[in-house]
């Protein structure tokens, strides 16, 4: 047949092969690159360690046999809220600093991504806690974090106090020793003076 005989198929296939290889290699590269990027993003370590208080609360909530009394559930929820307060304080304090550091190039993009993810997560967590609280008592959700932050502050103060108090023993020992030394020195001087007088 006329038109097909006149075509040199081999020569014609070369440009098409070229196009195919070019487009194909670009496509492979792009898909590999995206997959690797996605895998990397997924493998980013979480900002916070697993939320133990939340797990405790959820376990108690879903325990069927025997059912957990409401008071205990409420206490667990309050503890969960307290843990959230710790986290949100960390996030709030760190945000401005991290932005500055990111701008200057002192930290990498990964860290910022992890941070943003943690921020979103904590937002969800807060909403969840509010909903749970409202389920126990109407409008509790509005004040639960206030109580939680008071609890958190109290705990912090107590910890600081205990660290200060824990040094008291060694300080006391040191002071007793020092006192004894001073006494000995003074007595020695008095003795010398006496001897001189004699």
């Amino acid at each position: 047949m006329w038109p097909f005989d006149a075509v040199d198929w081999l020569t014609l296939s070369i440009p098409f092969a070229y196009l195919f290889i070019l487009v194909g290699s670009l496509a492979v590269f792009s898909s590999l690159f995206r997959k690797r990027k996605a895998a990397k993003a997924a493998s980013l370590a979480p900002w916070f360690p697993p939320n133990l208080q939340r797990d405790v609360y959820l376990t108690l909530l879903h325990q069927e046999e025997p059912r957990v009394p409401d008071s205990m559930l409420k206490a667990a929820l309050l503890r969960r809220a307290t843990e959230d307060i710790h986290r949100i304080v960390q996030i709030r304090n760190g945000k401005a600093a991290l932005q500055v550091l990111l701008q200057r190039g002192s930290v990498g993009d990964d860290l910022w991504q992890r941070f943003q993810r943690a921020e979103k997560e904590i937002e969800e967590e807060l909403r969840d806690v509010v909903n749970e609280a409202n389920a126990f008592a109407p409008n509790w959700g509005q004040i639960i974090f206030q109580s939680a932050s008071e609890i958190a502050q109290n705990t912090m103060l107590r910890e600081q106090l205990s660290t200060v108090l824990s040094t008291s023993k060694s300080e006391k020992e040191w002071w007793e020793k020092r006192k004894a030394e001073i006494e000995a020195e003074l007595l020695g001087e008095v003795d010398q003076e006496k001897r001189v007088k004699q």
Partner: peptide, 18 residues
């Protein structure tokens, strides 16, 4: 990209920040 402005590894900078 591996190094930060302070010439340390980006991963180290992240850990230090944490």
């Amino acid at each position: 990209q591996r190094m930060t402005r302070e010439k340390i590894l980006v991963s180290s900078a992240g850990k230090l920040f944490k």
